[in-house]
Every structure is written in C-alpha cells, then in structure tokens.
C-alpha cells in the first residue's frame, strides 16, 4: 500500500510532557506511509525541507502555569513562528492548539472545561462556513473524533468572534450525531461550539479533538483520516 503523500516532509515537535507524539507517528505511518521527523523542543531551527509541522497533544512542561504557556516560549517556537510567517502549514492538536493560542499564532484562548472536569469521549464535528483548503475538503460531512482534555473550552472576545466568522476561520464545531448544534452537543462550553479554527491564511489549524486517534474503524472511528489528509493537502 503506497500513499500519494509518502514523500511529504512532515515534522513533529516534542516538548517534555508531550504524550500524543507516538499516536501521531503511528497514524501518519499507518495511513500515509509518512515517517514523521521528530524535532526536540530545544532545537532553534527546523529541517530546511520541512513542508508541514505538527504540535502534538499532551501536557507540555506539565501544563504548569497555564496549558501551553511554557511551551510557547520554548526555543523551538521562534523557528515555528518563522515557519508560519513564511506560509508554512501547522496543525496543533489539543495541547498543540493551546500552544498555538499561547504563542498568538491563533486568536483566543482555551479555558478550563465548564464542568471543571477532564472529559474523554467521542465528539461529532460539523464544518462551519469558510474557504480554506480545510473547509473545501471537509465541508458537508460530520466527523466522529475523540476529545480528551481538561482545558478545552475555546474562548475569544466578541470582536474576535465576529472576525473569526467574517474571515471564515471557524472550522469545526461540536454538534450532535444529527449535525445540529445544541447545548447538549457542546462538551466543554466552548464559545459558539468552537472545536477548531484556522489562521487567516488557512494554513494553521488548531483543534481540541484528536484526529490521529480516529485513524481506524477498529479504534472506533476512521474519520480523522480525512482531517489529516486535508492537512497534507494544505502542504500541497
């Protein structure tokens, strides 16, 4: 089995406390035959031919202070910012999303779940309006993807929210199995049910759910594959 993405150069940043790195390595290998290039947080530059970058889930630096706060000032993040500045593609998953907002590479913040409890369960993601590669590839379907976080309640002020909507930056929203947004379908109290957003140029995606886990029907869902494919399409 070969994949059209097999030669794509994708990196993954390992922070101390990252714990979804192995799952990303497993999913990219199994689904796309891509060997991720591991980048240690103390590095100050990225491999020169890198086409895309993953910030994985976990508890970087123990999530002490605030989730993602210490990782956002680690040595590698300067290089990540440079990569994003040049239009590079980045996907931040769970703790990686928190790192992206703490680094101001995406707007808003991720607060404690409104239940104040860690939540691990399947979420159903609907795709909001927008014109990014992600929106175009993913629209019209519902994606069953697990969440596992204690601080996943997306928040942005009302002006920021308006801007996200107007720019078509909202990508995923927590929906019911019928695709309808209701209070019951919002697991953590996120504003406007937001589960994932993209940057203005559509190249940086931050999402709380874990597409790398939804990588096989055997594991409960294979819907994450399409999301990871869309990431690889943005690398293009």
């Amino acid at each position: 089995m070969t994949s059209k993405f097999g030669a794509t150069q994708i990196g993954l940043v390992q922070f101390p406390g990252s714990n979804c790195d192995a799952d990303c390595i497993d999913a990219f290998k199994r689904l796309f035959q891509i060997d991720l290039q591991l980048i240690w947080h103390e590095e100050t530059s990225l491999p020169s031919r890198l086409q895309g970058l993953i910030l994985p889930g976990g508890f970087s630096y123990g999530d002490y202070l605030r989730s993602g706060a210490l990782a956002s000032i680690s040595p590698i993040m300067q290089a990540v910012k440079g990569f994003v500045g040049k239009g590079g593609s980045v996907i931040g998953i769970c703790n990686g999303f928190q790192v992206l907002t703490e680094s101001k590479l995406l707007p808003g913040a991720l607060l404690k779940n409104d239940s104040r409890k860690f939540i691990c369960e399947y979420a159903h993601l609907s795709v909001a309006g927008g014109d990014s590669v992600y929106h175009r590839k993913l629209k019209g379907s519902l994606y069953k993807v697990p969440i596992a976080h204690g601080e996943g309640r997306y928040y942005v002020d009302s002006e920021g929210l308006k801007k996200l909507g107007a720019n078509g930056q909202i990508l995923f929203q927590y929906a019911g199995t019928d695709g309808v947004l209701s209070e019951a379908s919002n697991p953590n109290g996120a504003i406007s049910h937001i589960a994932g957003i993209v940057s203005e140029n559509g190249r940086v995606l931050g999402m709380m759910p874990h597409p790398e886990r939804a990588s096989s029907e055997l594991l409960g869902s294979a819907d994450g594959q399409k999301i990871l494919e869309a990431f690889l399409e943005t690398v293009g």
Partner: peptide, 17 residues
C-alpha cells in the same frame, strides 16, 4: 459509570479496541 471513565483518557495510545 460514564461519570467516572469520562474523566480518564481511555483512547490515548491508539490501541483501545
């Protein structure tokens, strides 16, 4: 028991069948 196991990550590792 959902109230309990929802608080435990039970998917991490890509192994849980």
């Amino acid at each position: 028991k959902a109230k309990i196991y929802r608080q435990y990550d039970h998917h991490i590792g890509n192994k849980t069948i």
